[in-house]
């Protein structure tokens, strides 16, 4: 093959275009397939209802569920509107999350940095972690009553293990050189903990928080089924008792939508607060 110099010359100005083309394109990935799947499920659901294959008592049509969401939003159900039920649930989740972070991060730091801390806290975490929260909910109610405090406590307890364990794992993932560098600049133990180990652990703590939100959300709905006068779980439970299936399904859809929003929020937080985690 011969190379013609005249042919090479025009290549240079074209080079930027080549670079542009090599930039990683934002791929749609599985999104189109996922959207098609959702559309298919809704279509199947609509057809099932439209041809009366299943009684509306068991499976109301998508349109009726939409109407139920609208009706609960405007007129409410069991003495509260959808917004009030949602806010009641969200307040519990965020109060529990705050408590779990305040307790869980220092506990995780203690496990990750101190032999004694690990010795003390490991058995407690390992006892709590595999327990289904609903197993200890009755005990919590005996101890601190049936009010908000018991629900928040149970949710926080469900959130604690993932936060503690992810913090401890994050602490251990801090590179030895990061710590040695700080030591060679004369850092004290406390400075190393606050300015090297804790920042190193933040990506892992955020991942733990995401898992904790999932665990907390499922515990919340269950806790509200047992004892509450407001909240999405309570709304579903009450609707089920009256066989108002459209509101049951409406509640499930709202809960799923909120969980989905949590997930998106968590990912945005990761992108804003720890952009460097992707470049480690």
């Amino acid at each position: 093959m011969t190379i013609n110099i005249g042919a090479i010359a025009p290549v240079a100005p074209a080079a930027p275009a080549v670079i542009e083309a090599q930039k990683p394109k934002r791929s749609l990935g599985t999104l189109p397939v996922s959207l098609a799947t959702i559309a298919a499920i809704i279509a199947a659901w609509s057809l099932t209802s439209a041809y009366g294959l299943v009684s509306p008592l068991f499976l109301p049509s998508p349109l009726i569920v939409l109407k139920a969401i609208y009706s609960v939003a405007i007129n409410g159900f069991v003495d509260s509107t959808l917004a009030q039920h949602t806010v009641a649930s969200l307040l519990r989740i965020f109060a529990a999350l705050a408590a779990a972070l305040v307790i869980g991060i220092p506990a995780g730091l203690a496990i990750g940095t101190s032999r004694i801390g690990k010795g003390i806290l490991d058995p407690i975490v390992e006892f709590l972690r595999p327990l289904p929260p609903l197993a200890y909910l009755p005990l919590i109610i005996i101890w601190i009553g049936i009010g908000e405090a018991s629900k928040i406590t149970v949710i926080a307890l469900a959130m604690l293990p993932p936060i503690i364990l992810s913090t401890a794992a994050g602490v251990k993932s801090a590179p030895a050189d990061f710590i040695n560098a700080a030591r060679s600049f004369g850092a004290t133990r406390l400075q190393i903990l606050a300015q090297v180990i804790l920042p190193s652990a933040i990506p892992s703590i955020l991942t733990g928080t995401r898992i904790a939100l999932g665990a907390g959300w499922s515990t919340l709905v269950a806790a509200e089924l047992v004892a509450a006068s407001r909240g999405l779980g309570f709304m579903i439970q009450s609707a089920a008792q009256f066989l108002v299936t459209d509101i049951v399904i409406a509640g499930i859809i709202v809960i799923a939508a909120i969980a989905f929003l949590f997930e998106i929020l968590a990912r945005l937080l990761e992108r804003w607060f720890v952009p460097w985690a992707a470049h480690r």
Partner: peptide, 10 residues
């Protein structure tokens, strides 16, 4: 000064 620079990415 370290081989793997040990700069803090945050």
């Amino acid at each position: 000064v370290f081989q793997d620079d040990a700069l803090y990415p945050w």
